[in-house]
């Protein structure tokens, strides 16, 4: 296997500005090293505030780490982040959003237009597809985002907790698509709160805790350990055992 991205000693510190002179420092990630192999599906799990979203932003290339390096040995890697919070211009229609996204993700205008019906069908939005995104429910936005993301033409697809939304039927469809993409050459990094899902879908899982890697390895093993540690009683026992 060849490495798509090499992450070495990456740290990320935020400086948040309040007003003119007051700033607030926060370390989101400290000294993280691992590699993303070409074609693998890597799951990232961890509690809220463990640095998962920051890691995704760094891997997407949106921001640069404050320390350490992210190298791509094979040359430029095109990438796109699929996320729930942001994603669309709410004043534009679903259709226009899809076309703009696809062109940004490497399609020509013509091939983007050809893909539109397929995405529209996958997202199951019906006539809403031609309405402004501001009229969509959260589930509809997520469906549109997922449909666009999985049809993108990028080397590395990063997914931030979007698989958990939508009704059960769509969730199943989304998982099936994920599994299909995993079988292909697509490299995927995906963040989830559900360890069982990570165990099901991923080759490897990375467990983040307070900005550090707690564990990285076989998906089932790490997901299991994470689940054990997350149960409050177990965690308490563990802590007392350490003492």
């Amino acid at each position: 296997m060849t490495a798509l991205l090499e992450i070495s000693s990456v740290g990320m510190e935020y400086k948040v500005r309040h007003g003119l002179f007051r700033t607030f420092h926060h370390t989101a990630l400290s000294d993280i090293s691992f590699t993303i192999e070409q074609g693998e599906t890597l799951g990232v799990i961890g509690r809220n505030g463990s640095g998962k979203s920051t890691l995704l932003e760094l891997l997407t290339g949106l921001i640069r780490p404050t320390s350490g390096t992210i190298r791509s040995p094979l040359g430029a890697v095109t990438r796109s982040l699929l996320t729930l919070g942001l994603g669309f211009r709410t004043d534009l229609s679903g259709e226009d959003n899809v076309i703009v996204s696809l062109v940004l993700q490497g399609y020509s205008r013509k091939s983007a237009r050809q893909l539109v019906p397929k995405i529209s069908e996958f997202a199951e939005l019906g006539p809403f597809f031609y309405e402004p995104v501001r009229t969509y429910s959260a589930g509809m936005r997520a469906r549109l985002g997922f449909a666009t993301g999985t049809h993108s033409n990028v080397d590395l697809l990063l997914i931030d907790e979007v698989l958990g939304v939508g009704d059960i039927e769509f969730r199943d469809k989304a998982e099936a698509t994920m599994i299909e993409r995993m079988g292909s050459e697509q490299t995927v990094v995906f963040v989830t709160q559900a360890p069982q899902q990570a165990a099901r879908l991923c080759n490897r899982v990375l467990w983040l805790e307070q900005g550090n890697i707690r564990e990285l390895g076989d998906a089932k093993e790490v997901a299991n350990n994470y689940q054990q540690a997350s149960r409050p009683s177990t965690a308490a026992k563990e802590q007392s055992a350490r003492r």
Binding site: T60, G61, R79, S101
Partner: peptide
């Protein structure tokens, strides 16, 4: 700011 959605997804 208007294009926060794209800026948060793709490095353009």
């Amino acid at each position: 700011f208007e294009n926060r959605g794209l800026i948060g997804r793709i490095d353009v």
